[in-house]
Simulated scan of single mutants.
Amino acid sequence: MKKTVLIALTSAVVIGGEIRKKGDEFEVSHELAQDLLRRGRGTMVEGGEDDEHEIDLAKLKKPQLIELAIEYGVENPESLTVAQLIEKITEVNEALEA
């Protein structure tokens, strides 16, 4: 089964022939989520019923990791390496799940 990600749009976009408005939340494929995050058109929504909403952090590029780190409240993420960003995001996520 293909992994999906819950995304909140930061601007209006056309997806699947439909205009989606800023603020809309919906599930998209992992690949589309990465594209929307990379282009600054969406942000990940926390929560979800199951593991289908997990993203492999190792597959994200540094700007995407920085955006996610900012959402998680990581201080000064721009100064961190990719490995440090992944570590910090993982730590915060595990603390939130505890």
Score class of each variant (00 low, 15 high):
Leu36Phe: 13
Ala8Gln: 15
Thr90Leu: 09
Leu37Tyr: 12
Gly42Pro: 05
His53Asn: 07
Ala12Thr: 10
Leu36Thr: 11
Leu80Gln: 06
Pro63Gln: 02
Met44His: 07
Leu57Tyr: 15
Arg41Val: 00
Tyr72Arg: 11
Gly48Lys: 06
Ser79Cys: 00
Lys3Ser: 11
Val92Tyr: 12
Asp51Arg: 01
Leu68Lys: 07
Glu67Val: 00
Glu91Asn: 09
Ile66Leu: 04
Val13Phe: 01
Thr81His: 01
Leu85Lys: 12
Arg38Lys: 15
Lys62Thr: 05
Leu36Met: 12
Arg41Gln: 09
His30Ile: 07
Asn76Ile: 01
Val5Trp: 04
Glu71Lys: 10
Leu60Gly: 06
Lys21Val: 10
Gly73Met: 13
Glu67Gly: 13
Val14Pro: 02
Gly23Asn: 01
Ile19His: 02
Gly73Tyr: 15
Glu71Tyr: 04
Glu52Pro: 00
Ser11Glu: 15
Val74Ser: 01
Leu96Ser: 11
Gly47Glu: 14
Glu78Thr: 01
Thr81Cys: 02
Asp24Gln: 08
Phe26Cys: 02
Asn93Leu: 10
Phe26His: 05
His53Gln: 03
Glu46Ala: 15
Glu25Asp: 06
Gly42Asp: 09
Lys2Val: 15
Ser29Asp: 11
Leu57Val: 13
Leu37Glu: 06
Glu67Asn: 08
Phe26Met: 11
Met1Asp: 13
Glu52Gly: 11
Leu65Asn: 02
Ala98Leu: 03
Val82Lys: 15
Ser11Ala: 13
Leu9Lys: 06
Met1Tyr: 13
Ser79Phe: 03
Tyr72Cys: 01
Ala95Leu: 04
Ile55Lys: 05
Met44Cys: 07
Glu67Arg: 10
Lys88Val: 02
His30Cys: 08
Phe26Gly: 01
Leu37Lys: 10
Ile70Trp: 13
Leu6Gly: 00
Glu75Arg: 13
Leu60Lys: 04
Ile7Ala: 01
Ala83Arg: 08
Glu31Ala: 12
Val74Thr: 03
Arg20Tyr: 10
Gly42Arg: 11
Asp51Ala: 04
Gly16Cys: 07
Ile89His: 05
Lys62Trp: 05
Asp56Cys: 05
Glu18Asp: 09
